[in-house]
Design a protein around this nucleic acid. Sequence first.
RNA 1: GGGCCUGUAGCUCAGUUGGUUAGAGCAGAGCGCUCAUAACGCUUUGGUCGCAGGUUCGAGUCCUGCCGGGCCUACCA
Length: 572
Amino acid sequence: MRVLITSAIPYINGIKHLGNLVGSQLPADLYARFMRARGHEVMFLCATDEHGTPAELAATKAGKPVADFCAEMHEVQATIAKGFGMSFDHFGRSSSPQNRELTQYFAGKLAENDLIAEVTGKQVYSNADGRYLPDRYIEGTCPNCGYDGARGDQCENCTKQLDPTDLLEPRSAISGSTDLEVRDTKHLHLRQSTMVDQLEAWIDSKKDWPTLTTSIARKWLRDGDGLQDRGITRDLDWGVPVKNGTEDWPGMEGKVFYVWFDAPIEYIACAAEWAEANGKSEADWQRWWRTDKGADDVKYVQFMGKDNVPFHTLSFPVTILGSNEPWKLVDYIKSFNFLNYDGGQFSTSKGRGIFMDQALEILPADYWRWWLLSHAPENSDSEFTWENFQSSVNKDLANVLGNFISRITKFCRSKFSEAVPAAPLDAIAQERAGLWASLAPLIKEYETHMEAMEVRKSANTLRAIWVVGNEYLQNTAPWTVNKTDPEAAAAIVHVSLNLIRLFAVVSSPFIPHAAQQMMDDMHTDDWSWPEDESALSALSTDHAFTVPEVLFAKIDDETREGWAERFAGKRD
RNA sequence: GGGCCUGUAGCUCAGUUGGUUAGAGCAGAGCGCUCAUAACGCUUUGGUCGCAGGUUCGAGUCCUGCCGGGCCUACCA
């Protein structure tokens, strides 16, 4: 089985916060690393989502042409993602030529299959800004409650749904200009409504999907008037120009596709970008995406926050199915709730919470990876607090895992040498068998949870595996045995040192950097997954190692308080 | 307004198709160990499972109502 994995693609307008990370890229990376470790061929793709009004405005604010702004922000996000250990096979860009071509191609196919309608509607145009304004970029006084900061889509004060034309004294949220007019403009609509039955049957067939995923999909399918057709074009400069395949689309000159149409297609285009970047052929990427070209044995899994679910369960599948071509449809959608920050929401726009760059400034990635994954908001929204973070890091990483490695390597150095000690083979075999008997059921449980993408449960089980190391040392007490029977103590140490390698291998999906450090310290590159007790014999007698530096440092109260204070307000 | 999710020990969470005395980690208490990042191991105290009804031989689990928290509601992405 080959595994295709995509993470929801992060929007280009700024650096993402930890809430964004834990809902998409991080669990996707966890799964990708695990599946690779289990010997599967994996294609893990992500990209930046670069089109749309917010990107244009962010570029304007930064005083840069939007293309330059996106290119820069793409590099920034790529660097930070790398810092967090994201093992993307490719980190692409939705503004790539490949995506432009594919997006236009899909639009052409959809038109060919009668799934595109041309609809003329009314849209607010701002003369001062020289652009059409999305509903939420129009502000004015709410006709319902009189709040003067109401947006064109909804009044934040009284929560009433609004139409921009409902607003009293409307103005541009960008410039404040009141020189607005309503113009007729033609757009393409994706006729999703014609495929409701097909989509519902498809969703119904996914018995093992998270409730969060299917319930959101069903809600959109059947709520109110049911699934509505959706505009897939916009009056903007920055985006994929509207074309019918390679042909011009009469009447759509100067318009672009809506970001939510081209962004999921980037999942596919990203594979094409990967091929170009790595000297691969078209066939090399199509074997992941075309079931007529080798993708039959591919399992495709998507990771995303719950806000992304409607587009991935409905709109994008309409694009795929509606093309009437054998493109790979998603097999499993893992969705997440939101992570809150210390009593409120993380917010990009308000600068509240911890952002990815800041997180890496204060601690290595694995500290964050461990906490975020072991507290992933799978069943409900979860909350980050500094106390909880400190407690988890100190207890799980420093005390249970880090200190285990420290105590056994230092004991070995002190009583034997910095190498795996020699011991009678039967004694080693006996210790190995006993230790493996404790580990085997936990490793099996870990595999089961990881395969099911049960992130929290996987973390709990991994922690239980680490605890086995300390239990083993406590029960066998080599420091006592060594006083009367050094050979028996040597056998215990021999096996314990091998346990470090095993820990590194099974832990690597969660904490890849620390795992690499553990492997380096043990002077090994044997990443083979533990299948039986031979996993505890990878390092043989006289195999040298280095006593590691502190693998995970503890967070003291003073430091924690300092961070809590520093991150209490807005980011700089 | 409508819909979905959620409420289990001081804290963070597990609890499979309803089935005996409701579990884990952290925090608290006691004991042990001394190799180790004052770390580790063992034992242990904490729960009317949000509230009130109902179905059932039996409800944390199913139904109804109420209360609290969260999210979504289609032109931000």
